[in-house]
Design a protein around this nucleic acid. Structure first.
Lengths: 156, 156
DNA sequence: AATGAAAACCCCTCTTT
DNA sequence: AAAGAGGGGTTTTCATT
């Protein structure tokens, strides 16, 4: 059953339990989920398939822990462009910078807003220099995360 | 083999190939990885176990797509605290707000920097009101993401 | 650190209600 | 939507190099 464009998939309590288990560990077995939610493995499987087809559950991924391979600095960088028309070229250039893990076109102060991972502050300086050389970039503003106290997915 | 505190785990080219495949899809089978990297499934399995034990690869998770369940607004919110000593209490309170998916203690303008997911702008306004009632919060500054053009993990 | 073989486990389909 | 049964594939362990 496909839902109409822009309408939201309705999750019942069993769906939510299943999703939270998979959000916590993508490899949770059907048998384990089955025991927890009280329906058969087949029923769990059918629900997961439906949720995947609807796009509610997306592909599972393994996380690389940046800290463990020497990336200790998390920062957010607001980028000012003197003309918004440079946005698309800037994004194209930013995709070539591996340290940039998020880029947003935002309302508010900045034209582009970035999340950037670096090994250390020297490395961050390099990235800032690189950013400031991009066409149309007039200025950047950096927030360094000293401590990430919350990092999780949405709970509904 | 445990690495010393603060030293980085050394990844060889085979490790990296394995990690990138798992970062793309946590459920990539050992057989498939084996064919790609040219070592046996058992060897792949041993390497993955080592990487997991070292914490380089973290638990795999399934993604809930916020948009599909009606969460359309991604925003970043800088929070000003009149005293940094309120930080810990603020974090405790923020953990109770499901819409807050990241919180950072930052250098720069803001004391706390948040990533917040909301259904729509009205919902965002509710969250902003909630935040402004927290003890020590003097002001907030909001950036709404109109388009997320990059969203990925670190590549090394 | 890597291998092949065997055991244990799990996913997925089919059939039925 | 949900259940049980069975085949095929996958993970995991074991012994060996």
């Amino acid at each position: 059953m496909k839902s109409a464009i822009n309408s939201s998939y309705h999750l019942d309590s069993v769906d939510k339990e299943i999703i939270y288990m998979l959000m916590d560990n993508a490899k949770t077995s059907l048998a384990h989920i089955s025991k927890n939610v009280g329906i058969s493995t087949t029923a769990v499987h059918q629900r997961i398939k439906k949720l995947e087809q609807a796009g509610v559950i997306e592909n599972s991924i393994s996380f690389l822990n940046p800290r463990k391979i020497g990336y200790k600095v998390v920062s957010y960088i607001g980028v000012f462009l003197d003309q918004p028309s440079y946005y698309h070229d800037a994004v194209k250039a930013l995709k070539e910078v591996n340290e940039v893990v998020e880029a947003h076109y935002t309302t508010g102060n900045y034209t582009i807003f970035l999340k950037v991972l670096c090994r250390d502050n020297d490395h961050l300086m390099e990235i800032l220099n690189k950013l400031q050389k991009l066409k149309g970039v007039t200025r950047t503003e950096t927030f360094i995360s000293l401590e990430q106290s919350i990092n999780r997915q949405l709970k509904v």
